[in-house]
């Protein structure tokens, strides 16, 4: 927990940054949310609040918008995330086997997620490790190494 003073300091800092970067207009909302996420790797509650103040939009509405977008995250990513595409095309090329393989491997500190399409179906199956996508993956140790490494 930050002390009251520190808390105010970091709010003020963020506020100044937002004032510099984004016009006080509701249309800045999504770009500013992206900015928050880039800065903090998720959307912290106090950040949403500061953004709301800056834009003149009630925090609940900023939050309402933020939660409507599937690609913004509202909590700190606690683990290294591995995303396995289990879309139709990737399933054709073995996505399910990859999922089963990874489940069995149960690599420490790794959270396995799925997505419905990674939009690179032509190099299916696709797996993302830490923000990079890899195509034509096979359920073998090279994949496990990639994830561990």
């Amino acid at each position: 927990m930050a002390s009251a003073g520190e808390e105010r300091k970091r709010r003020n800092e963020l506020r100044r940054e937002l004032i510099d970067k984004f016009p006080r207009d509701r249309s800045s909302l999504l770009p500013a949310l992206h900015y928050l996420e880039e800065t903090f790797s998720f959307l912290p509650d106090w950040g949403i609040e500061v953004l709301g103040w800056h834009l003149g939009v009630p925090p609940s509405e900023v939050y309402g918008a933020a939660t409507s977008y599937t690609e913004l995250s509202l909590s700190i990513p606690s683990h290294k995330t591995v995303i396995v595409c289990d879309g139709v095309a990737c399933r054709e090329k073995g996505a399910i086997q990859i999922l089963e393989f990874l489940k069995e491997k149960n690599i420490d500190g790794v959270e396995i997620k799925t997505t419905d399409c990674a939009f690179m179906c032509s190099v299916a199956p696709a797996v993302s490790v830490g923000h990079t996508w890899y195509g034509r993956q096979v359920p073998d140790n090279s994949l496990a190494e990639l994830i561990e490494g």
């Binding site: 095309a89 054709e92 032509s122």
Partner: peptide, 12 residues
């Protein structure tokens, strides 16, 4: 056309 799935030569 975005061609994929169980084809030998997927692509655009």
């Amino acid at each position: 056309i975005s061609l994929s799935g169980s084809v030998s030569t997927p692509g655009v």
